[in-house]
């Protein structure tokens, strides 16, 4: 019962704040709405018993990416003209609606083999075991820093003063 209420509350907040991101005319406010959306999604993770992910969501998205976006908004202030739409508004809307419709139709018409096993909690040690074991995902974990390093170097090269 608690979960149900929590889900609906978080879902409504998340969807509304997401709508806020795309509909608000002020980019700064849109970015704040995005932060709210991220937090709501972190809550959704908690309702899914994904405590580690919820923490990571807060840390990475709310703590890092949002700040980055805010920084970018401020850097490009002098050319900001709000958040106008382009000519593709109507087609994009139709595609989005069709997407929701299709996925909903698909989800409702699929017989999901839902497992009755209760979810693990806490998940942190299990995830650590998976991530850092040879049988698990150690290779992707080792590749990920290379990706991040490349991204950092790329970003520096792109924005460096000539």
């Amino acid at each position: 019962m608690v979960l149900t209420i929590a889900f609906w509350a978080l879902a409504i907040v998340g969807v509304l704040s997401a709508l806020g991101v795309v509909l608000l005319g002020n980019v700064f406010r849109a970015s704040l709405s995005l932060i709210l959306c991220f937090i709501a999604i972190a809550g959704i993770y908690i309702t899914l018993h994904a405590d580690f992910l919820a923490a990571a969501q807060i840390l990475v998205y709310v703590g890092a990416i949002s700040i980055l976006i805010l920084l970018a908004i401020m850097l490009t202030r002098d050319v900001q003209h709000g958040s106008p739409s382009n000519k593709l508004r109507l087609p994009a809307f139709i595609v989005a609606i069709l997407f929701v419709g299709t996925v909903t139709f698909a989800v409702l018409n699929t017989r999901w083999q839902v497992s009755s096993v209760p979810p693990q909690e806490p998940t942190t040690s299990a995830i650590a075991g998976l991530l850092f074991s040879v049988e698990g995902f150690i290779l992707p974990v080792e590749i990920a820093p290379i990706l991040l390093l490349a991204a950092i170097i790329g970003a520096i090269v792109l924005v460096r003063e000539k």
Partner: peptide, 20 residues
Amino acid sequence: LQLYGLFIGIGILAIIIVVY
């Protein structure tokens, strides 16, 4: 780019619908 993205979206939808 956004127009291309739109076409990608339409394409994916078309594929899903056709598959269904």
